[in-house]
Simulated scan of single mutants.
Amino acid sequence: MKIDKFVIAIIISIIVAYFLPQLGASNSPIPLDTIASLGISLIFFFYGLKLSTEAIKSGLKNWKLHVVVQASTFILFPLIVVAFYPLVKDTNQETLWLSLLFLAALPSTVSSSVVMVSLAKGNIPAAIFNASISGIIGIVITPLWMTSFIQQTDIAYDFSAIYLQLGTEILLPLIFGLLLRKYLGTFAQKHKRTLNLFDKSVILLIIYKSFVHSFEERVFSSLSIFDLLVMLFLVIALFFLVFFITGWIGKRLHFSREDSITAQFCGTKKSLVHGTVFSEALFGQTSIMGLMLLPLMLFHAIQILIISVLATKMGEIETLREIEEVHK
Rank of each mutant, 00 (worst) to 15 (best):
M231R: 08
L76M: 08
I128S: 04
L171Y: 11
L229A: 14
S41D: 06
L60S: 07
I12A: 07
T286P: 03
I14M: 15
S308R: 12
F159H: 07
L180T: 12
G135V: 06
L144R: 04
L253Y: 10
Q189M: 00
Q152M: 14
V273R: 05
Y47S: 10
K190Y: 01
L42D: 00
K50P: 01
W97D: 13
I139L: 14
S37I: 02
L229K: 09
A188N: 02
S132E: 04
Q151F: 04
S72H: 03
K328W: 11
M314V: 01
R321L: 12
I30V: 14
V88Y: 05
L272F: 10
A17C: 06
F45L: 14
V88C: 03
D33L: 06
L166D: 04
F243R: 00
Y18K: 15
V68R: 03
F243Q: 01
I40S: 03
V16P: 00
I80K: 09
L195W: 00
I206M: 13
G250L: 08
W63F: 14
S148V: 03
L76C: 03
A156R: 03
K57P: 08
S99L: 04
E94S: 15
E325W: 04
Q303S: 09
F129H: 07
L23S: 05
V115P: 02
N196A: 14
T109E: 07
F283A: 02
S260A: 13
I80F: 12
S132H: 05
T53D: 01
L204F: 06
I175G: 05
A55S: 15
Q303F: 02
Q264N: 10
L296A: 02
K2W: 06
L60D: 00
W63S: 11
L32I: 15
L49M: 08
A161V: 10
A55G: 08
A105N: 04
K5N: 14
F265E: 05
K2F: 04
G284M: 07
H300W: 00
A105M: 08
T276A: 09
V212Q: 11
F129V: 07
T276Y: 02
S37M: 05
H327Y: 13
I323H: 05
F45K: 09
K57E: 11
S99R: 06
L320Y: 10
